[in-house]
């Protein structure tokens, strides 16, 4: 019997619910933790980033307009589908991060649990941070959090799945839509997450995943007028390496178009332009901070009276 030919997988982008190749036609080599060739991934260009923002903007009305409860159900469904792909995730994470099979499985468990944790927050954040404010006048004064819009996310460079889930889930749980730059050197778990999202009930365009060189595409997203917030988690380099992303410049570009910015961990309150480190994503967040980082507070005054 003839030897069976391998059916190799083409890793593509995930934009607007579809899996396009890069508009530029480029790809780059992805290696495992030991530097051995694993696959060619699509290398997104600025135009792919632009298309992704368009897709995210188009999806925003539907996603933010869905009830919080419904968003929670949809996100929980994502966790179910991730569970079904557990083995595939574990294999990709083990290769990307150089973990043993057992440790990789534990990372995937944690990532699914993190997704469920954020799914639970969808219909609870408004109760936690919303308020009926006491005011000196005959008014009902109510504050409610609302999703900010389109969020550009630089996903963590080291933690290719748990870190990714920890930054993407809070954005979509709050009702925003996002364009995610996956870990530059460890992009493959993000591509699998894209396949999970495409086969769950998340509307196309709510999450858009781009693989490629972070320092190349990030400035276009930071300066994009139609991006409402920027998460710089992925500006922190891989442990022991020099930073390739100048997150201070990204923040400055974002400021020019009034884009909300979440600085990377370790950058300090004063915002010195280096020192970004990747936090330990296995630690459960102490509250929905990341959800609220991508929400705006709307306060309404309504006259009382009979």
């Amino acid at each position: 019997m003839a030897a069976r030919l391998d059916v190799r997988k083409t890793y593509k982008l995930y934009v607007g619910g579809k899996f396009p190749r890069s508009e530029s036609g480029r790809s780059y080599e992805v290696t495992d933790a030991k530097g051995r060739f694993v696959a060619n991934a699509a290398k997104a260009s600025r135009k792919d980033a632009r298309d992704a923002v368009l897709a995210a903007r188009a999806a925003f009305a539907g996603w933010s307009g869905a009830t919080a409860y419904n968003r929670g159900q949809v996100l929980y469904r994502v966790a179910e589908v991730m569970e079904g792909r557990h083995a595939q995730f574990a294999e990709e994470v083990a290769r990307a991060e150089g973990l043993t099979a057992a440790k990789a499985r534990a990372v995937v468990d944690a990532a699914i649990d993190r997704w469920v944790w954020y799914a639970g927050w969808t219909d609870k954040v408004a109760q936690v941070v919303g308020a009926a404010n006491p005011v000196a006048g005959p008014y009902f004064n109510l504050s409610v959090p609302e999703p900010t819009g389109v969020v550009a996310v630089l996903a963590p460079q080291a933690s290719s799945l748990l870190g990714l889930v920890s930054v993407v889930a809070p954005v979509v749980a709050g009702g925003s839509t996002c364009v995610v730059l996956a870990s530059e050197r460890r992009p493959l778990p993000a591509v699998v997450l894209g396949e999970v999202l495409a086969t769950s009930d998340v509307p196309g365009g709510v999450v858009n995943l781009l693989t490629g060189v972070t320092a190349e595409t990030a400035p276009w997203l930071a300066s994009h007028e139609d991006v409402d917030a920027l998460d710089l988690a992925g500006a922190a380099p891989l442990p022991g390496e020099d930073p390739t992303v100048d997150w201070g410049a990204l923040e400055a570009a974002a400021a020019a178009t009034l884009t909300r910015v979440v600085r990377p961990a370790g950058s300090g309150a004063s915002g010195e332009a280096d020192g970004a480190v990747e936090p330990d994503w296995t630690v459960l967040p102490d509250g929905p901070r990341r959800v609220l980082a991508f929400m705006e507070t709307k306060t309404v005054w309504h006259p009382k009276g009979r």
Partner: peptide
């Protein structure tokens, strides 16, 4: 030099 928003 930056991508524009229809909001403008």
């Amino acid at each position: 030099g930056v991508y524009a928003s229809p909001d403008r």
